[in-house]
Amino acid sequence: MLTILILLLILMILGAIIALEGKDLLSAIISLGIVGFALVLVFLILQAPDLAIVQIVVETLALIILIAAILKTTREDTTETRGAKKIFIYLCGLGFLGLFLFFINQTLTELPRFGYPIMRMAGNYLSLGLTKTGASNLVAAIILDFRGYDTLGEVTVLFTAVMGVIVVLRKIGRRTREKLPDETKVTGSRKIEEK
């Protein structure tokens, strides 16, 4: 099982590198999809079906939105970095990689062995979850009862993010729309009337 996990992780790293370096943006998005769907398999192997369901639908939706954006705009990757800027970027990347390897080496020696968690808190959740909440799916019992605050925060963050997207990407502000002449008011209901 560990071998399959390592192979999947290597596949994900390759997909991420291709997504970053590819010149064709459509193939970059498809290799981004490789990363996401390999993550679904990793979740399934690690016996987390809740996460796997969420990941597979979120990944599909994100790919649809990205591909729709690509079809609207362009397929070519036009960003270029040259000369001193490029060297600076590579130096920063190498420095960050060194720091990351140093700290992860110090951290990993402290952690318990892979697949054998300590279960100090989770042991109580596992044994008392059904009697305290009445939910037979322990994940639901934890995220909506024991850890309800976290879920409340998550949902509020999603709400705020969507509000931001709608406000930033609106077509015409309400105040400008009143000043404009009738023909420039492009709304959906108007278009149907024209037809």
């Binding site: 809740d50 796997a52 369901i53 799916n137 994940v139 639901a140 995220i143």
Partner: peptide, 8 residues
């Protein structure tokens, strides 16, 4: 069925 089976 979020509280019975995986999902939510």
């Amino acid at each position: 069925h979020g509280h019975l089976t995986p999902g939510g």
